[in-house]
Simulated scan of single mutants.
Amino acid sequence: MTTMQVLGTATEIDSMTWQISNLNLDGTLSAAGGALISTDGGAVLVPDLPVFDDILGDTPGEVQYTVAYSENTLADQGLVSYAKSSDLDTANQVVGTRNLETSKVLEFVGLDTGRAVSSEDMVVDGAGSIGITDDLFICPFAAASTGITPEFCNIVEMGSTVDMTIMSLATGASERNVAASADVPVAADYVIAVTGFGDVPASGSASAFIDAHLQEGSSTYLGTFNFEPFGAVDAYLTDKGEDVQYSEMTTVSGEITAFSKVLSYQSGIRRTA
């Protein structure tokens, strides 16, 4: 928690990078062990016999995430009121909670050539290998749709920049990427609101943006076959099934009565409303 009441100059510089893996954070992704026999040329073989869990191990498909957040604020030659809270919780989260949460309020009235410049940026970058649906979900109906969860590689960036001589600014950033099971989707949110004071509008420029590149795998069930020496196996073909690139930016400048923007991202086989 940071609070400042200043007539003059105030600065705030924050930087955070968090990397996490459910296996080894070594820059490579490992496919699921245990039920997963092999992946070769897009073919995935999953045995029906539980005995192979003891032989091959019960290693889940690997997932790695990187979360980065930064803020850079300089309020110079003016009356400054600043309050910010930041919280990082690396534990498993449920729907409605977050691993990272930040919020700030900056009010500024410039004197003569005074101005306030503030920027924020949050990145959520995740990649995962093939996993076995029964091992990942609590929901008993998930495996009825697909026996395996294909690979994915998704990156989303959100943030804002303001450059003002007078303003009341409020922002919030939050994300969730750690949960006990895949029933809880990954989520990221960013909000910004800029106003003036009473009948006096804010003055300057403000912008907010989101950039996303989402790549999701697909799987096709081929059937159950007798595959010696392993016995009965379920066979799947896997490939890239989706590639989405999206960018959005909103910019305002001049005498600003009100500017607000809400950006949200959610990814998972199971989603919340």
Rank of each mutant, 00 (worst) to 15 (best):
F52W: 15
T251W: 06
S168Q: 11
W18G: 02
I256C: 06
N177S: 12
T161Q: 10
G196W: 00
Q77C: 06
T9V: 12
D89P: 01
G217A: 08
A187K: 06
A68R: 12
K84P: 01
D40E: 14
E248A: 07
P140C: 12
L100A: 02
Y246W: 05
M16V: 11
G126F: 04
T171W: 02
S103T: 08
D183S: 09
V191L: 01
N226G: 07
D58P: 02
N92P: 10
T102M: 06
D14G: 02
T224D: 10
S253H: 10
F137W: 09
A188W: 01
E151C: 10
G172V: 04
M249L: 05
T251A: 09
I37Q: 06
G33E: 08
R270A: 10
A32C: 07
D135L: 05
I130W: 00
V117D: 15
A75Q: 02
F108T: 00
P47R: 02
N22L: 02
I130N: 00
M249R: 11
D121H: 13
S207M: 12
L214S: 13
D211Q: 09
E101F: 08
V156L: 05
A232L: 14
T171I: 11
S219G: 08
M1Y: 08
V184H: 01
F197K: 05
K84S: 13
T133A: 11
N22C: 02
Q266Y: 08
G114V: 09
D135F: 03
D112V: 13
S86L: 09
I13N: 14
T102D: 05
F225E: 13
I37Y: 04
R176D: 07
E151A: 11
S81C: 05
Y221R: 11
A182L: 12
V109K: 12
G27I: 05
A182H: 02
R115Q: 14
P60A: 07
L169F: 14
T257N: 15
L106Q: 03
I37W: 05
L79P: 00
Y69T: 07
I37R: 10
M164Y: 01
L100D: 01
P201E: 13
S21P: 01
T97R: 12
Y82W: 14
S30R: 11
T220G: 10
L25Y: 05
Y236E: 01
Y82G: 01
D199T: 07
M249K: 06
L237P: 03
F259H: 01
C153H: 13
T102E: 04
E107H: 04
A127K: 09
D234A: 12
T2V: 13
D89H: 04
R270K: 14
G241W: 03
D112W: 08
G223F: 09
D54P: 02
T146W: 04
M4P: 02
K240N: 12
S205L: 09
I13D: 14
P229C: 14
F52T: 07
D199E: 12
S81H: 08
R270N: 11
M158A: 01
A173S: 15
